[in-house]
Amino acid sequence: MSRTVYVNGRYVPENEASVSVFDRGFLFADGIYEVTAVLNGRLVDFEGHVARLHRSLNELNMHLSLNDNALRDIHRQLIDKNGLQEGLVYLQVTRGVADRDFAYPDAQTPATLVAFTQQKAIIDSPLAERGLKVISLPDMRWGRRDIKTVQLLYPSMAKMEAKKRGADDAWLVDSGLVTEGSSSNAWIVDHDNTLITRELSRSLLHGITRRTIMQLAQQHDMKVEERGFTIKEAQNAREAFMTSATSLVYPVVSIDQRPIGEGQPGEIARALRRLYIETSLQALDAQEQT
């Protein structure tokens, strides 16, 4: 059955959806996006994703006329129209349509906004059960990795290289330190049970799931340290894991074919994943009752 998607104010069957060949997202990757998880038919961490969307818009001097309530309504309408219980809502905003020119069009040029749903098993994920194998690759992306742009060719190439080597994903390395995964934030757990993840900067995406996991860890008296770490330190860690809206928490069981710990999903990563899911569902239930 064809999905219903959103394109510039209209809900249409996916096979009828289109944007102009002159859209700057198509011509220049001049666009940004957000992906929000859906559990039990409801949006998870939506406020955080919208806040980051606004940050990306501001950093690129892009304009979007819709307010947060309208954006939320688009998401909810798509969930309802597609009967989505578990999965994702993808939202993309580009600078809009203009004749091809490296210079930006006028700021009042209407943005292009598209959104669609994807079904995905998030809670009962096979990858969460078995853990991920990752490889390390040099981070060759542009310098503003903190902006969630649609410039995703190198992360796509990194994932394909990982698959070629029999792994699931890649952790990217710049100046000897891990920045993040190809589409996730990277974490390790040292032998004192301290959670370590790279500090926020322009070098990596300011992950919404990363932020929530950090809050949950601190609420449960887990020590968190924000700093860079090397691949060697990660290989010698007690545990490793990654976080993102599409995966929540995925344990990492090997890096460059070297097992992490016992080569099995770690206890802390599993506990954080359970805690994130339980807390998110409780928060959604509470919102529904108010």
Rank of each mutant, 00 (worst) to 15 (best):
M214W: 07
N8A: 02
E161R: 15
R52L: 14
W171N: 01
I32H: 12
H206K: 09
F102I: 09
E47R: 10
G228S: 10
N193A: 13
Q218V: 13
E86I: 02
L172E: 03
L275C: 09
R144I: 05
L53G: 08
R270M: 10
L152V: 10
S65H: 13
R165H: 14
H75N: 12
R274D: 13
V12A: 06
K159Q: 13
L39R: 12
Q85H: 12
K164W: 09
D192I: 00
I135W: 14
V252H: 06
R130G: 00
L57I: 08
G263I: 10
L195Y: 12
L27E: 09
N82G: 06
D192V: 01
N67Q: 04
D30R: 06
T149E: 05
T4H: 01
S56L: 03
S56I: 06
G228Y: 15
R238L: 14
P110Q: 03
L284H: 01
M222S: 00
S65C: 03
E161L: 11
Q108H: 14
S125G: 04
H206L: 04
G96S: 09
D23W: 14
L66C: 00
I260V: 15
F116I: 00
N82T: 06
Y11E: 07
L57C: 05
M62G: 03
Q92L: 03
P110V: 01
N8Y: 12
G176L: 08
A271C: 03
V97Q: 03
A245V: 01
S201K: 11
T212F: 12
M242H: 05
K223W: 01
V189H: 08
T194D: 11
L64H: 10
A51C: 04
H54M: 01
R24T: 13
V93M: 09
A240H: 11
L113W: 14
K223Y: 05
V35I: 11
I208Q: 02
E226D: 07
T209R: 07
V21W: 08
V252K: 07
A269K: 12
D73C: 02
L53I: 10
A103I: 07
G48C: 08
E34L: 02
Q257R: 14
L272R: 02
I196E: 06
K223C: 02
G166V: 07
L248A: 04
L216F: 12
R76Y: 06
V224R: 14
T243R: 09
D168G: 03
R273S: 10
D101A: 12
K164D: 07
R141I: 01
G261A: 07
D221R: 14
V44W: 14
L205F: 14
V249M: 00
H206Y: 06
V19N: 06
Q289I: 04
I147F: 00
R274L: 09
V7C: 10
S203L: 13
I255N: 05
N61T: 08
N61D: 13
N193W: 11
D146S: 06
S56V: 01
G261S: 08
N67H: 11
V253W: 15
V19A: 05
S201V: 04
R100E: 06
V97G: 01
L127Q: 14
E86W: 06
D68P: 00
T194A: 11
